[in-house]
Design a binder for these strands. Structure first.
Lengths: 149, 149
DNA sequence: GGCTAACAGTTGAATTTGTAACTAACAAGG
DNA sequence: CCTTGTTAGTTACAAATTCAACTGTTAGCC
């Protein structure tokens, strides 16, 4: 016996829809970095941030990417074990560790970056440029990382 | 040393953006069903599907909501333990189990549904009706549940 | 019937994540 | 210096998720 009240399809519920879309959109790409380099999602993100912005600390990565520090910590450990990045203690403040991609790490980054761009283009191609632009801006606002609320 | 190539900010990458938005959008609501009824996300989803569409099997739920069968199985077990739903073996085919909310389950559903609707309205209010409509339709297409690709 | 394959759902072991407590390093005030 | 508080990062333990193998049941086909 469904409810008597006006239907409220779960698939109209924004958080639900966002989730479904995010999962579906990330699926194929996930298998690429997983199968090709054995990376986990967090690892891929950390790699991506370092590749794009260069040397930075774990804390910075966590803040920029909104990843919890324990996740960053574990991802960094795995990436370091694979020689994708090097860690260097801060000289003035020894609590920090400066992370930087190795040549290997940069090569992986460059490869995945290409794939990511192509993948993004493929997703975007399903809509008009204006639609995609609006989508991006709305998603940014929803994610609360855009100071425009 | 960031890459020499044109920047490709991770936060421009659609799967990434979708993920961030989904996480942010779901956060507050998650604490509601968690704190108020001790439900896990999957449990809440199963409850919602049964509340909205009425009696159905675990398999149907899994297909509609794109939840893996083991997740559904465990969610159903917890919901049954809390007497939120009843399970009934199919008479013609005893492999199936027909799931249905109890009065308690329906009450929980009704309450959460109200909250969800209000929550959705609050999220949507940040945009124009046209924008929200477009967002929903794009998300549906991305999630691949809309046969329009 | 009796064999095999397919299917709904469950369970167990291995991964992954989340929470909280922890270590090591610095900073500020006395 | 020596407390007290804060910060960057790690670790330990519990909770959740995944993957694969498993049970019980039905269907097809000889």
């Amino acid at each position: 016996m469904p409810s008597d009240e006006p239907p409220f399809d779960p698939s109209d519920f924004l958080p639900y829809l966002l989730n479904q879309a995010a999962e579906a959109a990330g699926q194929d790409f996930q298998t690429i970095y997983k199968d090709r380099y054995g990376l986990l999602r967090t690892e891929w993100r950390v790699l991506f941030h370092l590749g794009n912005y260069g040397r930075m600390t774990a804390k910075e990565i966590g803040e920029r990417a909104a990843i919890h520090k324990t996740k960053v910590s574990r991802a960094v450990q795995k990436l370091a074990a694979r020689r994708y990045l090097t860690r260097e203690r801060g000289e003035t403040d020894r609590r920090f560790e400066y992370l930087e991609l190795t040549a290997t790490g940069r090569a992986v980054y460059a490869d995945l970056r290409k794939v990511a761009q192509a993948y993004d283009a493929r997703l975007s191609a399903r809509f008009s440029p204006e639609e995609v632009a609006l989508l991006r801006s709305m998603l940014r606002r929803l994610s609360g990382r855009d100071r425009a609320e």
